[in-house]
Structures are given as C-alpha cells and as structure tokens.
C-alpha cells in the first residue's frame, strides 16, 4: 500500500536525492522500469552503478555483456558462501561516486538489486543496513539517485513492508504517452495499460500504439480508474483489438459508474472479446 509519505514518480522523473524502490513481480516489469532508468542515465552521460549479487548478471536496458564506459557492475556477493556486507557495499559505492566526480561525470544513478540476499541468514537485517547506507549516500546528494528493485517473489509481506518504509519515493514506469489531456502507463499486474485523463478521436492513434507494445496472446487489462471520458471510437478500437487473432480479451477494470452506464446503454459491453472487469 502507499504510505502517506511516499511519492510515486516515473523513473525518468527521479531526481538527485531520490532513493526509490520498485516492488515488482515479474521479469517484464523489472526490465521495463529498470531498463528505462539505465538507458536514460547512459543517454544523459551519467554514471550508472549496478549493484547485484552476480557479476555475470545481464544489466536491464543494455545489450548483454556490452561494455560501457559509464556503466559499472558491482558484484556485492562473490560466491555462494560469502555474505552481503553492508560496509563493503557502502565503501564500493562511495569509491565509485568519488571516481565519477574525478572524471567530471555530473550525476550518478545507482541500482541496488539486492533482494536475493533475503534468503541468507539475517537477510532482512543485512539488507536494511545496506538501505541505510544508500539513504546516507543518496538523500543529501545533489547528484546521486538510487533505485532499489524489490522482487516480490523473494519477499514476504513483512520484508516488503520493512524495505518499502526505507524509501520515500516509489518508482513507476514511464508513461507510454503523456500530454495535458491523456496519460497512458503500462501495467504489469495485471498486464495492460492504465489510462487517465480523456480519450477521444484525437488520441486513438496513441492508444493503438500503446496497445501494440503489450505481449501477445494474453488478456489486456485496462485500468480505467483515472479516465474521465472515453469516446465510442475508442471502445470500437478496443473491440477490434480484442477481435484480432492471438489476442485474449480486453478487460475494462475500475470504470467509473457513469462510464459503465454509457457502455450498458450502447450495448458495447456485450461485444465479444470486450469484458468489464474489476469494479471501480
């Protein structure tokens, strides 16, 4: 759940001093969000420090095994018997940040992918100590940003709550589309798009584009909670998408009651392939 003091921010909008977490449950979400963060950093010529358990791990957002002058992978845990050492993590990060300084790199992005360590004895305590150091490095800084991916499959509820409480910011996927009228953001649990604002014929093309990036062969969930208006053409478009070969249903979740009333009135909700899902 959102805590009162946590801010939700698209990864590309993270700013220096932000120590963010990303609780994810699938590889596609991890790749999508962390990949955008890594790519964005390298494109802006910032240093990217990827803290992981496995030095051979692929870094999201860059081609496998691609060497990059600004990308450093820090293996925090060498070998199966060694343990994650918060002080070593702190020293390694501090050294890399100092090195970036010396080379005149204006900003540093840290990715701390550490939830694998929860399986070790005292895993949570060790991880929380690492978070403490990350907070000290990041929060007062005008140049360092950090994101901690939290793999829900490796955390129990108490772990997740304890870890989230250490992050004032929650990283969110970058919008697939955003303007003053409409925002489209990819969702992963369930897979689909979250729509907010208003959708009419002037933005059918961007909806179609956003739908095209979704994995094929599965139901597409559209979170309509933030959508104040949808026109008949867009509903028609969704029915067409649902009718395409190899696509599952298009499920409309959390529609406002007024919008549901419109669908009921025109009978679109009965179209094959189009389903009304979770209530508002």
């Amino acid at each position: 759940m959102d805590t009162l003091w946590s801010v939700r921010r698209p990864v590309s909008d993270l700013r220096p001093g932000d120590h963010a977490c990303l609780a994810y449950a699938g590889e596609d979400e991890f790749q999508h969000v962390v990949g955008a963060y890594v790519r964005g950093g390298l494109r802006a010529r910032e240093a990217v420090l990827y803290l992981t358990g496995d030095a051979a791990a692929a870094v999201p957002g860059v081609p496998p095994r691609a060497a990059h002058r600004l990308l450093t992978v820090i293996a925090a845990d060498e070998g199966p018997r060694a343990r994650l050492d918060p002080e070593a993590v702190r020293d390694a990060l501090a050294a890399e940040v100092a090195r970036a300084d010396r080379h005149g790199v204006r900003a540093v992005r840290i990715i701390a992918d550490l939830t694998w360590a929860l399986r070790r004895p005292d895993g949570l305590e060790v991880l929380l100590a690492c978070e403490e150091h990350l907070e000290r490095i990041t929060a007062p800084s005008t140049r360092v940003t950090a994101i901690c991916p939290l793999d829900r499959r490796r955390c129990d509820a108490a772990d997740l709550e304890a870890l989230r409480a250490r992050h004032a910011v929650r990283a969110a996927p970058d919008p697939e589309f955003e303007d003053p009228v409409l925002t489209i953001v990819r969702t992963f649990q369930p897979a689909g798009l979250s729509l907010s604002g208003e959708l009419d014929a002037s933005r059918h093309a961007v909806l179609d584009q956003a739908l095209a990036i979704l994995p094929a062969g599965r139901d597409i969930h559209l979170d309509m909670a933030g959508l104040g208006f949808i026109d008949l053409g867009a509903i028609n478009l969704l029915a067409d998408v649902a009718g395409r070969a190899g696509t599952g249903s298009v499920v409309l979740d959390r529609m406002a009651p007024e919008m549901r009333a419109v669908l009921d009135t025109v009978g679109w909700a009965r179209l094959p392939g189009l389903r009304v899902g979770a209530p508002a």
């Binding site: 009419d200 208006f229 949808i230 026109d231 007024e258 419109v262 025109v266």
Partner: peptide
C-alpha cells in the same frame, strides 16, 4: 444526472467527431 451527463458528452463528441471528419 452524472450518468446522463456522461451519455450526453459521449453523444456530442461522436456527432462533432463525425462533423469534423
């Protein structure tokens, strides 16, 4: 009502979209 307002907005948008096209 809120529901009728939404119906009206959808109807007006449709008719205006047709007129524009």
């Amino acid at each position: 009502s809120g529901e009728d307002l939404q119906r009206l907005l959808v109807a007006v948008t449709e008719v205006v979209t047709n007129a524009l096209r």
